[in-house]
Design a protein around this nucleic acid. Structure first.
Length: 792
DNA sequence: ATACCTCGAGTTCG
DNA sequence: CTCGAGGTAT
């Protein structure tokens, strides 16, 4: 080495240290001290220096993380000390922990008996779901890395492992042995997996199936540059061969030592004593599982002291002193026995896979939605296929992929049937829509049934006691055709019906007692139906099941139009002026009420005594929104833009005056000739004019119904609030209701337009988003104060 | 026209 | 919860 090194040499050393320091902070300490951009800048500067002075480019330089392409596959590496596989323990059925975790009981007992020790101490850690590898360091420098392979012989993936920034190229600190083999897991963090897939999808590349495949596939890339682009991470969990040095006497101390030498070690690694300690750890990690930054499939228990380990020894290739305690699997493979069609309330035909029952994450899964025909085509699911089923983050099972290697030779691709399996009407797909729909409408029993269930549901009419099973029978036995029929039913008829159902199902306890139970049940149901007569306008509008009208739009209609009479008589062009109601939604509403049958059902419901506690005059704010201009706007006459429209209605504020004036006067008032000609032609058609007249009449009705003096402004008018987490005293629904009573809009997700977020206990991503966007965050106490202030 | 942002609809099991 | 699509702001 130079006695007095030149400046570039010192700078290179400085850069290397800074870069490795950054890696260490990021991967080992989980506390980054520079940005990614800064990191890249340092790396590029070092690259430039090394290019100018080739003598600098030593193999342990961070710039050498991406090396040359391997040709013709990977060399074999023989593990001097075999890489072990662990015995697995799964949760079993049982009442007590000792029954459920029988295999752990036995494991622990075996250790106690062999070593004649009570409550042995174990080193415990999460079992990462990635790829096991071994890293060899000579004189503190990373020289070779290999996959586990069969445990005896793996593949040399040194070049690829160099690209993994979490793997130190040089050990830190001191006291490491001359030769050290470190074992651990290469994984892909969930966020890196998501980012990769977002990128892949955006660029038409094949996304990765899961983070584990991401890690495994990336390491086996022949071109290290490809591996480098996929961000991999690494956690060390064991030591293999050691020469010319010593390790501490226990595993937990060794992990601490590895951390000092610069390896990332899972922060969840811990020690536990005895069976109870192991189970407590299993539960603790299980509860954290979803919030960890990586996938795990269980926890690993290792007897902590090496002397004990040696005394226990091995059974075939698995150590007797360690065991993997697996969580119930999140993914399972099973067989698709059939693909059936379900018809929803709107007629949407949803294919559902009937599966051979399989345990996934603790529950038996027999059905999984396939969403739509496109999804089936994408996955290419066929009847008889073996598929991987997952219960992802939430609860709903989904088919992840098909194991095509297990496909029976004659399996045919699945196609959407031409007709509805329930009513036989044609299935049709709207242009550009994903869903096929049954065209049977309310002729289709499936749709009638779903419509009724929706009508009775908690957020709609809230009829207690009207469950799905019973609605099924009501519809099939044809006791109920429309929701209005529900209100004609009496206790006697219900009892008779219940008997008919029981008979049909073959369970007929013809006893007096059964009759009494049936009567009691029918009385409750009739009481439930009766109670639903007193409802609110938004609930009722929602209950009708008009396409595109959910709770939110139902509320919009109710607050702006005030009464059912107004809602049912307002034509589409006028509805369109309400917030969040565009062409599609407006014509869906007007279309619903244009059908005589629907109007009859509404009348029948009113006749049955449905009453609203909250009807009111239309909102005074309508005054600003209504006018001939919105009607002309809606007509979309060619060449008649907003400017021309404004000009016209200034001179001719009513349809009558506009017609009376005629094109000559329009042009005098300043309307361009082309627009005038188009408008004249438009108005000449009776088919265009009639709806306009009708719409104008509806506007008049609304304006006449407006209250004289303007109501006082609601205190939270125009504010958008988001609730997140659990609100211990109020509860979400209550808080929402009371905020809305004060005029606020309660939204489901945080955006920059959100006025404030109320965060309760265990608030999640919405809270993060709020902080990110700088939206004020309130606690429940502050919300309560606000509500109290306004006399809530 | 495009890019968000919301809302609506559908889904499973205990 | 997730997807698709409608509505609106840019």
């Amino acid at each position: 080495m130079h006695p007095n090194p030149p400046a570039w040499h010192r700078r290179a050393a400085e850069l290397r240290e800074r870069i490795e320091q950054a890696n260490h902070r990021y991967y080992v300490l989980d506390d980054p001290d520079i940005t990614d951009a800064e990191y890249d800048r340092l790396l590029r500067e070092l690259e430039a220096l090394e290019e100018a002075h080739p003598q600098l480019a030593t193999p342990d330089s961070p710039t050498r993380r991406v090396g040359a392409r391997a040709h013709g596959g990977f060399a074999e590496v023989h593990h001097a000390l075999p890489m072990l596989s662990l015995g697995n323990a799964f949760e079993q059925d049982g009442q007590t922990d000792r029954e459920r975790f029988r295999e752990i009981v036995e494991f622990e007992r075996r250790v106690e008996q062999t070593l004649d020790r009570r409550e042995p101490v174990f080193s415990v850690e999460p079992k990462l779901d990635g790829l096991a590898i071994s890293l060899r360091y000579e004189q503190g420098v990373f020289v070779q890395g290999a996959t586990r392979g069969d445990g005896e012989t793996g593949e040399d993936v040194t070049a690829n492992l160099r690209t993994v920034r979490a793997i130190p190229l040089k050990l830190r600190g001191s006291g490491w042995p001359d030769v050290l083999e470190v074992r651990g897991e290469v994984i892909m963090l969930r966020k890196d997996f998501e980012a990769f897939n977002d990128y892949a999808r955006a660029h038409g590349e094949r996304p990765l199936a899961n983070p584990r495949n991401g890690a495994a596939g990336s390491l086996r890339q022949l071109d290290p540059a490809v591996t480098a682009r996929r961000k991999l991470s690494f956690f060390a969990y064991a030591v293999g061969m050691v020469e010319g040095g010593e390790l501490p006497p226990t595993h937990s101390q060794t992990l601490a030592r590895l951390r000092e030498w610069g390896f990332p070690v899972s922060p969840e690694a811990d020690v536990a004593r005895g069976f109870d300690g192991l189970i407590a750890y299993y539960r603790r990690i299980g509860a954290k599982r979803d919030s960890l930054p990586y996938d795990i499939d269980g926890v690993v228990y290792k007897l902590d002291d090496y002397a004990g380990q040696r005394a226990m020894g091995f059974v075939s290739r698995a150590p007797r002193w360690a065991i993997a305690h697996k969580f119930p699997a999140q993914e399972q493979s099973t067989v698709v026995e059939a693909i059936e069609i379900q018809i929803g309330r709107t007629g949407a035909a949803t294919p559902v896979a009937r599966l051979q029952p399989v345990q996934v994450a603790g529950v038996t899964v027999t059905n999984a939605t396939l969403h739509n025909a496109d999804q089936i085509a994408r996955l290419d699911v066929r009847v008889g296929d073996t598929v991987i089923v997952r219960r992802a983050g939430d609860v709903i099972p989904e088919v992840v992929r098909v194991q095509t290697e297990h496909r029976a030779p004659g399996a045919q691709p699945w196609t959407m049937p031409a007709t509805c399996p329930v009513c036989g009407s044609a299935l049709m797909r709207e242009e550009g829509e994903a869903a096929w729909r049954c065209t049977g409408g309310l002729v289709c029993p499936a749709q009638r049934k779903e419509a009724l269930i929706h009508f009775a549901s908690r957020r709609a009419m809230d009829i207690e006691g009207l469950g799905e099973r019973f609605v099924d029978a009501l519809v099939e036995l044809d006791y109920v055709r429309t929701p209005a029929d529900l209100y004609d039913l009496t206790v006697e008829r219900f009892v008779a019906m219940k008997q008919a159902i029981d008979e049909r199902e073959g369970t007929t306890p013809e006893t007096v007692k059964a009759g009494k139970i049936a009567t009691k049940w029918a009385e409750n149901l009739v009481a439930g139906i009766d109670a639903s007569r007193r409802t609110t306008l938004p609930r009722f509008l929602y209950a009708l099941g008009i396409m595109h009208i959910g709770e939110s739009t139902a509320r919009t209609l109710a607050t702006w139009l005030g009464s059912l009479a107004m809602v049912r008589s307002t034509p589409a062009p006028v509805l369109r002026v309400l917030p969040d109601i565009g062409d599609e939604v407006a014509s869906s509403i007007a279309g619903f009420f244009a059908q005589e049958g629907n109007q009859r059902v509404v009348d029948a419901l009113l006749a049955a005594g449905i009453a609203f506690a909250d009807e009111a005059p239309p909102s005074p704010r309508l005054r600003e929104k209504l006018g001939l201009a919105v009607l002309l706007d809606h007509a979309k006459v060619p060449k008649l833009g907003p400017k021309s429209t404004r000009l016209l209605v200034e001179h001719f504020p009513t349809l009558e005056r506009l017609l009376a004036a005629g094109p000559a006067h329009w042009i005098t008032a300043g309307l361009p000739q082309a627009a005038a000609a188009n408008l004249e032609a438009f108005l000449a058609e009776e088919a265009n004019l009639a709806p306009l007249r009708e719409a104008e009449a509806a506007m008049r009705r609304l304006l006449d119904a407006l209250p004289q003096q303007t109501a006082q402004r609601a205190p939270l008018e125009g504010q958008t609030v988001v609730l997140t987490g659990t609100l211990p005293t109020l509860g979400r629904d209550e808080a929402k209701q009371r905020l809305e009573a004060l005029g606020a809009k309660v939204a489901g997700s945080v955006s920059k337009k959100t006025s404030f977020v109320v965060a309760g206990e265990a608030a999640g991503s919405k809270l993060d988003k709020a902080q990110e966007l700088g939206v004020p965050v309130w606690d429940e106490a502050r919300l309560l104060a606000l509500l109290a202030e306004h006399g809530g």
